[in-house]
Design a protein around this nucleic acid. Sequence first.
DNA 1: TTGTATGCGTTATCAC
DNA 2: GTGATAACGCATACAA
Lengths: 340, 340
Amino acid sequence: MADIIRKNAAPRVTIADVARHAGVSKATVSRFLNHRDTLLSPEISERVAAAVEALSYTPSPMAQALKRGRSRLVGLVVADITNPYSVAVLSGAEQACRRAGFLMMLFNLGNDRERESVGLRILSSYQVEGFILNTMGLEREAVVTQALQGRPVVLVDRLRQGMDVDFVSLDNQQAIGMCVRHLTESGYGEFLLVTEPLDGISSRQERVAAFEALQGVRGKWMETRPDDHAGLVDALRALRRQARRPPALIAGNAVVTMRIVAAAAELGWQLGRDIGLVGIDDTLWAPYVGPGISAVAQPTDALGALAAQCLIERMEGLDTAARAIRLPGTLVARGSTRLA
Amino acid sequence: MADIIRKNAAPRVTIADVARHAGVSKATVSRFLNHRDTLLSPEISERVAAAVEALSYTPSPMAQALKRGRSRLVGLVVADITNPYSVAVLSGAEQACRRAGFLMMLFNLGNDRERESVGLRILSSYQVEGFILNTMGLEREAVVTQALQGRPVVLVDRLRQGMDVDFVSLDNQQAIGMCVRHLTESGYGEFLLVTEPLDGISSRQERVAAFEALQGVRGKWMETRPDDHAGLVDALRALRRQARRPPALIAGNAVVTMRIVAAAAELGWQLGRDIGLVGIDDTLWAPYVGPGISAVAQPTDALGALAAQCLIERMEGLDTAARAIRLPGTLVARGSTRLA
DNA sequence: TTGTATGCGTTATCAC
DNA sequence: GTGATAACGCATACAA
């Protein structure tokens, strides 16, 4: 009874083991791994390959990161992982990263704006080579910049004051224009854009700005909060009462859409007939709520993939001016914008 | 014009820098970091603290992991990040991990069952100390076990053949029992449980088994696939035609619920009155679809937190028999189970 | 109580 | 072409 085998004893097989097994030096194995093509005698190469196979050796990314100073890690910071939009984008980004040989480290803020710099710092300490950010963006710019450690960044959906970096998002102007045009063509004549509190969040601001900039459109906009259900109900009632032409609502995102649906239900209104509704962000349930909710679908996969691609280019050294990529949405018309 | 400042030059501040700044050895700094309380002369301690502060030093978790063989990392493998259930659980788990000082590395399979062992292996190579698994679980047990490298594991929602590890999930038996009782009390008398293809997935199997085991219940069950919309419609039609008492459906999860809603809409049936429906998994949209969809809400946060807790205990050495934790769901009654 | 030296698993710089 | 060897940032056994 020699020695006790510890549970979970999974002695990592290292480059040294491979070298021993192949009867060569560690350096040779490392060369085989990193410069397979050049600098290699066929016979030795064969031996090393066999040893790697036999021991099913995998290099330690940790050690590699330590040595190279590069980790093949990308940090993703998300305001709220519970938000399907964020998840959809993240999913697209993850695929693109993976294809490029990067692994994504995810940090979820759980809507806690104070945690942003913490997240950045932690991710930084893991030597992530770049960041994809989709956050509230309300921490002081200085502390964020400091936590970033000069690494490349791409912003998704939400711009930040004073950060001159790549940016990827829905073309909000196009989206809002499309909504209004669709509503107009469907026979509605007065509009109310409902958004979550602007709170300095660029995508919300852009949607409002695009709405206000529209020529010849009778429209107002308002903010709504989760706890102010009554306020929303009142606003809808007022809109319909004062309207001379059939009124319609534009929801700034899916959460607002949901709130509006609840308010309309409370008023006993039928969407489409009593009031029009089109929301930004299409969802799985949209077809089945009431008469179906019309919505602008965001190209989330493409957004994620583009964000990743921008970042990867930067990480590989691209040093041109910051880019802003805006992708058009797609309108899906359903019953909530049918007057008849 | 001395030297060119490279962009992104963020020379990491190391323990050596701190040591130099404080006029002590690296070992001392390390001790300050790890055994602050003991082993320290107050005066030196002060100096080191100051230096750490001044340079805003953060240890490199990579280097630490390499040295200690422990990373403070937990690997989470998810079948499909797009699934709100998975996200809800993951969110709960992440919080618990964070509180315990662990960071979560996420690996999404994108429903690709071949990628499971790849994910495990990658996560393993990053020295994660344990795994939380919510996967299809269809890869050969041997390769999974091998990829696990003997690290602690906790399974969420889905059991695996031959893996004797901690397990956390909804109490499916209770949930199904509750559904049937609720339907019965609401006046329905014949039942059809609709589930996604069992495919060896334990939670689905358990729900079916629980349903079949119910005494004195007139019920059948069926599988449904995304592409077999027509089959589902036919099944509903048959159910209603043959039923002597008002029939009702039980949906195995939210995806199935959605499909049933679509089928009922196509048939022009009103949920509740023409056919009852209760689904497992409550969702944000459930109140607003048709007359509102009755559903069993899973305690996702608690499930995630418990999974994390189990894992943490194991990582800290707990070596008791594998535990199975099953939490009860909560039924939320809405219009889809109101006959009147 | 503090400093010196070694090694974690790699890669890169030198010699040979 | 290939093999020693140093270094990446850190923690610890050992010496002082």
